[in-house]
Nucleic acid binder design. Structure first.
Lengths: 204, 204
DNA sequence: CGTCGGCTTGAGATAGTTCAAGAGCGGTGG
DNA sequence: CCACCGCTCTTGAACTATCTCAAGCCGACG
């Protein structure tokens, strides 16, 4: 029902502007999506986890680059085949719409983060977002949150620098909100406290 | 085929969290969409112009507040009626999907703006975005761009302060990129120059 | 066990914010 | 029709969160 594809860490599945002629489902590993400005500034628009779909688009060209974070395994189809399949399945059309609406709502939430939150609020929101995603997956649940991406990737997702990410993490450690089990794995010690930080602290 | 509604300047059509039980089309006037943080910080997520749809959502609750900029005239239907109509029209389902995908692409472009652009780049992008929208409408075309929203609204859309908006406009005036015909109407003197600013200047 | 690359921490620079006046426009009433 | 008033917009000056640049640190890997 499709072809299997294995990509190495850092390898791009496709670039912004490439012809969108394949659709993927991520079976193993994580992927980052980003857009670049002409001078190299980068905005990460999202991260994908096992089970996520990729490359479905109503446009001819991809609007962003997709790059493997670690080693990834994917399953892909030609887009033409996918489109033909969708046309025969009215329920699928609806499902695509629902998925796009969810992505749109998430993007609008991210607009608030990028437009109006402080560095600490951004990082707290990010940790909780990952924790929330993990809690829905059977296996990855619990107080621990994996960070499969680098500090730079987090920074480019949150619209800050990698140094500011480090400093905010250190701040949270000193406040006993989190603990770094390893460099890429956070233990949440105080989810409530983190939530308070994420939405602007307790002001009144 | 629906009811007419006239709202006065500053009046909200609905608030974030309200039950989404009506769909609208804006026949006259302009609307701003925004989300608030608990402490009052605001992120404007978009502006609507005559002909735009509003309130179509797969969710039960509105994800943002919609507020009239000036006096507005709208046409609305109960959502239940709209949903029933969509179900009978497979082409409509597809059109909704296409619309959501376009909004998503626009939101991702705005993520780049909010995450990585400087104040001047943000304002230049904004002016060009309005000019581009206007150029598609038969009547509003030309070098002139109307700003139906306040400086604060622009600021909250671009993730900066109203003072910074003013300063960037003054900068563009001094560089002969634009002229303010009136406070709320810009004449674009150098679209190319504005484009260069919008995407990070000419670096090489 | 040493090296390399990413992470953390520090110190100084800065873009943008905040706070504070003034200026200009539009609306109102004399 | 003009003068006044209120509000938004502009400009200025000081402040600050974040960035930039520069070491050291530390963990992963050979």
């Amino acid at each position: 029902m499709g072809w299997t594809l294995v990509v190495t860490p850092g390898q791009a599945l496709f670039h912004e502007g490439d012809r969108a002629d394949r659709v993927f489902t991520l079976t193993n590993g994580c992927v980052k999506l980003y857009k670049l400005l002409p001078d190299g500034r980068r905005q990460v628009t999202g991260f994908l986890f096992p089970g996520d779909f990729l490359g479905v688009s109503v446009f001819d060209e991809h609007a962003f680059t997709a790059e493997a974070l670690g080693e990834c395994q994917l399953c892909w189809f030609p887009r033409s085949r996918f489109d033909r399949y969708v046309e025969t399945q009215p329920a699928m059309e609806r499902e695509l719409y629902r998925a796009a609406a969810h992505e749109l709502a998430a993007a609008q939430q991210q607009l608030v983060l990028l437009g109006r939150k402080t560095a600490a609020e951004r990082l707290a929101s990010f940790v909780l977002e990952l924790a929330d995603k993990a809690s829905r997956s059977p296996e990855r649940a619990g107080r621990f949150v994996d960070l499969p991406m680098s500090r730079s990737d987090i920074a480019d997702y949150l619209g800050i620098t990698k140094e500011t990410v480090s400093r905010a993490l250190s701040l949270f450690k000193s406040q006993r909100l989190i603990r770094l089990e390893t460099l890429n794995r956070i233990e949440i010690l105080d989810a409530e406290g983190l939530k308070d930080v994420a939405d602007g602290g307790l002001e009144f």
